[in-house]
Design a binder for these strands. Structure first.
Lengths: 117, 117
DNA sequence: ATAATATTTCGTTATATGGCGAACTATAGG
DNA sequence: CCTATAGTTCGCCATATAACGAAATATTAT
């Protein structure tokens, strides 16, 4: 029950849901998500740590960046089912669709900054 | 997104989850749930109204009593999937198991009060 | 009609939560 | 070494939420 409630509370916030859904197309670093949500870095960091504590996201550090991603197959069944529930429920959500487009642009522009052709 | 968040917030509270799971074995009146959760009537009423607004429960009035139940097949797909998620996630939960036993006793004793043999 | 029971609504209070900025840690680059 | 960048932690404030009791509503029983 405790684990379930940790997950349910983590999913009961629009910013965290948007962040989670944005990870469907692959990992993102924190600054990507900051730009997506248009919130203060400290706020986004807190949101991500709540998702992380619920095991709804995993992290990978690469130099200065910390990449967040959806958990893999070895994640607890409860976690996987929860993510499936969110993704299924919001597969056609308009906000999520807009975010997906915005994220593509954000990732592109960040790439452009680091490896200019 | 709004409907989803209404549901997610409704599910992010232990008392409401316990009430919802208690309805798996059939409808209950408010006083049953008050006795189960051991909270003030006004508190339980508020919890149930939150579940109701999220369409996670339906009601039926019978005399003095108002019976709450899980929604039927004509409930929105999103609602049904949400309930399935909760029930699946907590199918083996210890608190829920204890509650199921307690509810059986509560219902029995309420029946005994009204139709004494 | 009156009393008792079931439930809801309302007002209050304490705590939880989301938001921010400032300060801190860590890494990369000049 | 110094600066810039990425991220987290901490402290603060405003709002949201869960809890209660008192009062209101509705229905049944006396």
């Amino acid at each position: 029950m405790f684990d379930f409630l940790t997950i349910a509370k983590a999913l009961a916030d629009e910013s965290r849901i948007r962040a989670l859904l944005a990870l469907r197309d692959g990992e993102l670093c924190v600054c990507d998500i900051i730009e997506l949500l248009d919130l203060a870095p400290s706020t986004v960091s807190k949101h991500l740590s709540i998702l992380r504590q619920a095991r709804l996201v995993e992290t990978r550090k690469d130099g200065r960046w910390i990449y967040y991603r959806l958990p893999g197959d070895k994640a607890p069944h409860q976690v996987q089912e929860s993510i499936r529930w969110v993704c299924d429920s919001l597969s056609k959500d308009l906000t999520a669709k807009k975010d997906a487009i915005k994220i593509k642009r954000i990732v592109r522009s960040h790439l452009k900054n680091s490896c200019q052709i």
